[in-house]
């Protein structure tokens, strides 16, 4: 996949940003073009296609958690809309997962 997003495994339903992707950027997904509703920092994830609530999130072809709500294609996938199947992620001040510490 070209552009700022990387598909790590064929079966994945998330893409990983290999560079900062600005808000408003149009991204060509397999399901069609989407416009990023927010800035996606390096190494953060977006949905490759629409993901149903309760669906497994796959990265490296392996499950990294479960969607806690419907996630639309191109939407940021992070602690606000997925949860661990194991130990809960420690509560963070920056609940949407982007802190001032992220290089942008």
């Amino acid at each position: 996949m070209s552009g700022p997003f990387l598909l790590l495994h064929e079966t994945d339903n998330v893409l990983v940003a290999r560079q900062v992707a600005p808000e408003g950027l149009e991204v060509a997904l397999e399901v069609g073009p989407v416009t990023l509703s927010r800035l996606i920092p390096l190494a953060h994830k977006i949905a490759r296609h629409d993901i149903a609530e309760g669906a497994k999130i796959l990265k490296y072809g392996m499950p990294i958690g479960v969607a806690t709500q419907e996630i639309a294609a191109g939407e940021h996938v992070h602690v606000h809309n997925i949860r661990s199947d194991y130990t809960p992620t420690h509560a963070l001040q920056d609940a949407d997962g982007v802190s001032a510490g992220v290089a942008q």
Binding site: V16, A17, P41, L42, A43, H44, K45, I57, K59, M62, P63, I64, G65, V77, H78, V79, I82, R83, S84, D85, Y86, T87, P88, T89, H90, L92, Q93, D94, G97, V98, S99, G101, V102
Partner: peptide, 19 residues
């Protein structure tokens, strides 16, 4: 009470301990 997961991990794009 929680796993090996620090605030910086989430800021860096990791969402869960299994990821």
């Amino acid at each position: 009470g929680y796993g090996s997961f620090a605030a910086g991990n989430a800021a860096g794009g990791l969402s869960t301990i299994e990821e």
